[in-house]
Write a protein that binds this DNA or RNA. Structure first.
Length: 373
DNA sequence: CCGATTTGACCCGC
DNA sequence: GCGGGTCAAATCGG
């Protein structure tokens, strides 16, 4: 349904994204040019913002769901479905955080939580195929709860950013496995990562893969969970590995603070609205491969004066970003992971996925030594 | 030992 | 009261 509409919209979207990318490139050039006038940079930044506003409008107004497919070297295909800006995840579930409760009034905390961006991704995996890619999803999640949901066959897992207390990062996610399709998972993200995730700010070792993050352990004790999480791990792997199609919330009114690391250099003090920063990060990904969402971790440390406004294949492979999503956890994941890793070493990765109604193809050659350069 | 996970209890909005 | 979300003590595990 609304296929035509969707395609039309997608086309506009892509055009806008491309334009934004161009602007970003120009901005990058100007940022690196000592002679560049401040006004010029501001102007470019402004244009980028405008561009993103348009993109956001396109994404917001449409009820369409962004769906992507990505096929990787292993041949497995992953589909990602996202409702951009979806605030309909669960009717009333709020991101409760007692940290807020203690300091704010209840209503304030509630409002605050309600204001948090929330978006849902649905991920379907094709089981039985190879898994590859770096596991590096740059964010560390910590599981803080699991609950059986009424009418749902499988329990829902609750995760929060590991740096919640250290850095006050309020990002959380919920992972819910689909009842009738074990290969389908719904991941609801809430809040932005405001943390300067250390693991993300440091260029991964040229080994392409990364930490088998410690959080990848789980309830192998429970048979059901075990089974379930196993699947979620597969998904996770897809996310963290082949699927670099990262859908990130396209929320423009993000209340959170600007993380320390980002796409705008500290000198671009003109940009103090977080949404723009995030938008740019979107641009970052969108512009290159229509990958929504972008892990905000092009750190100053790694970028120096170069803000990496272009995406390289290695970026793609390592930007698990927000999408590390299913950091489901399970020891078995490690097995899968190792498989994935070995597969990831494949120098070339083919991509094939849809965005809206448009399909994209691309093939990358990985250069493991060229991370974040 | 310390950080992550598990899991029953608790809280809160509806 | 119900159900979803989170807490936090117990436990696990590197």
């Amino acid at each position: 349904m609304e296929q035509a509409y969707q395609q039309f919209e997608t086309r506009d979207l892509i055009n806008e994204v491309r334009q934004g990318k161009e602007l970003a490139k120009q901005l990058q050039i100007h940022l690196n040019a000592p002679t560049s006038a401040h006004e010029t940079r501001e102007y470019l930044a402004h244009k980028i913002i405008v561009s993103f506003d348009k993109i956001l409008n396109l994404l917001n107004c449409g009820t369409s769901i962004v769906t992507g497919y990505e096929r990787v070297a292993g041949g497995r295909e992953v589909r990602v479905t996202e409702s951009p800006n979806s605030f309909s995840g669960s009717p009333r579930s709020e991101d409760s955080d007692q940290d807020f409760r203690s300091s704010d009034s209840k209503s304030d905390a509630s409002r605050k939580r309600k204001a948090m961006p929330r978006w849902t991704k649905r991920v379907k995996i094709q089981p039985g195929t190879g898994i590859e890619g770096s596991l590096d999803d740059k964010y560390n999640w910590r599981k803080y709860g699991q609950k059986d949901i009424l009418g749902a066959k499988y329990p829902r897992g609750y995760y929060r950013c590991t740096h919640r207390h250290a850095q006050g990062c309020l990002a959380t996610k919920q992972v819910q496995r689909s009842d009738n399709d074990p290969t389908l998972f719904e991941i609801t993200y809430r809040g932005r990562h405001t943390c300067a995730d250390q693991s993300s700010t440091i260029p991964p070792p040229p080994s392409e893969r990364s930490d088998p993050s410690p959080s990848l352990t789980a309830n192998v004790h429970d048979p059901q969970l075990h089974n379930q999480q196993r699947s979620s791990q597969e998904v996770l792997l897809n996310f963290k590995t082949d699927l670099k199609v990262i859908t990130e919330d396209l929320d423009s009114h993000d209340p959170v603070h600007v993380p320390t690391s980002f796409y705008f250099p500290p000198t671009s003090n003109n940009i103090n609205n977080t949404s723009e920063n995030y938008s740019l990060s979107h641009l970052y990904m969108l512009g290159d491969h229509n990958n929504f969402g972008s892990p905000p971790f092009v750190s100053p440390a790694t970028s120096g004066s170069n803000y990496n406004l272009s995406v390289s294949p290695s970026h793609m492979s390592n930007f698990g970003g927000n999408f590390q999503a299913l950091q489901a956890s399970d020891n078995e994941l490690n097995e899968i992971i190792s498989v994935a890793n070995s597969a990831t070493n494949s120098p070339t990765v083919g991509l094939n996925y849809q965005f809206g109604g448009v399909e994209f193809n691309s093939s990358f050659t990985f250069d493991n030594s060229g991370f974040f350069s």
